[in-house]
Amino acid sequence: MPPAPYPSDSAPSPLGPDDALTPDALPDSWVARTPRPVRPYLRLMRADRPAGFWLLMWPCLWSTALAVPATEPQFWILCALFLVGSIVMRGAGCAWNDIVDRSIDLKVARTAARPIPAGQVSWARALAFAVGLSLTGLLVLIQLNGFAIALGIVSLIPVAIYPFAKRFTYWPQAVLGLTFNWGALMGWAAVSGGLAPAALVLYAGCLFWTLGYDTIYAHQDKADDLIAGVKSTALKLGPSTRAWVIGFYALFVAGLTAAGALAHMAWPYYLGVAATAAHLAWQTARLDIDDPTRCLDLFRANTGLGWVPFAGAVAAGLLAV
Rank of each mutant, 00 (worst) to 15 (best):
A234E: 06
S232E: 05
F208Q: 02
L226G: 13
I246P: 04
A254K: 03
F252G: 05
G212A: 11
L237S: 10
L207N: 13
G238A: 13
L235F: 05
F252I: 09
T233L: 14
W244S: 12
C206W: 01
G205F: 12
V253E: 02
W209K: 00
T241M: 14
D225M: 08
T241E: 13
C206A: 15
D225S: 03
R242H: 13
H219K: 04
Q220F: 02
G205H: 13
S232L: 11
D214G: 05
D214L: 04
G238M: 11
V253G: 09
T210W: 10
L211D: 03
G205Q: 08
C206P: 01
L235P: 10
Y213W: 10
G247Q: 08
A218Y: 05
G255A: 09
G255D: 06
L207D: 01
A218N: 02
A223H: 07
L256C: 10
D221M: 10
T257K: 00
Y217D: 03
C206K: 00
T215M: 03
L251T: 13
R242P: 13
T210P: 11
G255M: 09
G229W: 01
Y249C: 14
Y249A: 14
L207W: 07
C206Q: 11
W209A: 08
V253F: 12
G229T: 10
K222E: 07
